[in-house]
Amino acid sequence: MTIEIDNLRISFVGREVVKGVSFNVAKGASFGIVGESGSGKSTVLRAMAGLNNDWSGRIAFSGEDAPLFRPPAFFRKVQMVFQDPYGSLHPRQTIDRILSELPLVHGMDNIDDRIAKVLSAVALPQTARFRYPHQLSGGQRQRVAIARALIAEPEVLLLDEPTSALDVSVQAEILNLLADLRAERNLTYVMVSHNLSVITHLCTEVGVMIDGHMVEQVTAEDLRLGNVNHAHTRELRSLSVELEEPA
């Protein structure tokens, strides 16, 4: 599924927070959006998912313009994983209930089978199925959140800082899982993060956002080599190079 974003503008109560962002993602590719808090990166992602209705411009999946209010079928194609695995699972529902919601809405068959399969796809034990979110670790919860997105059998996965609330050892497991899933299912990823290393690990192309503008689009390789133009990209890169390696 190709994704085209053209001159996307998003406002919150009269204040424009995304000021004309454009980018394209090829089918099966992974695109990263990096930026600091308030740069509008998560807002772009939420508008793509259909969680925000106050936008103008063009958001198109497979060449088809996405309407302001998405029909239910849209969510079989596009799913999202949120940042905080503690806040993205209903605190009073079992994992089973959380996972079966989308199949129930869409009248899918063999729900039990689907849940079992999706749990093993994210390497969770079947015994996790009837537990509550608070009985699971942060990494396990994020796996549940990924499973919830996968059960729709989507073509596009929108990832909003999927590892920034996790410990680094768990982050490695989740990043590996996301890489494997993309390869297995030919998924298209759009991932948002503030961490350049995480973004370049998973994405081949990166858009840099500051203050509602996407100031630069660069391949991960060029970013690595330092072939960048914008001052903000350079600053983020040098911080990453300097601080993410031990002294």
Partner: peptide
Amino acid sequence: CMPSLMHPKERLPVL
């Protein structure tokens, strides 16, 4: 197990 900008790894080693 940390991803790195300068030293890309195909797969992150798991702890």
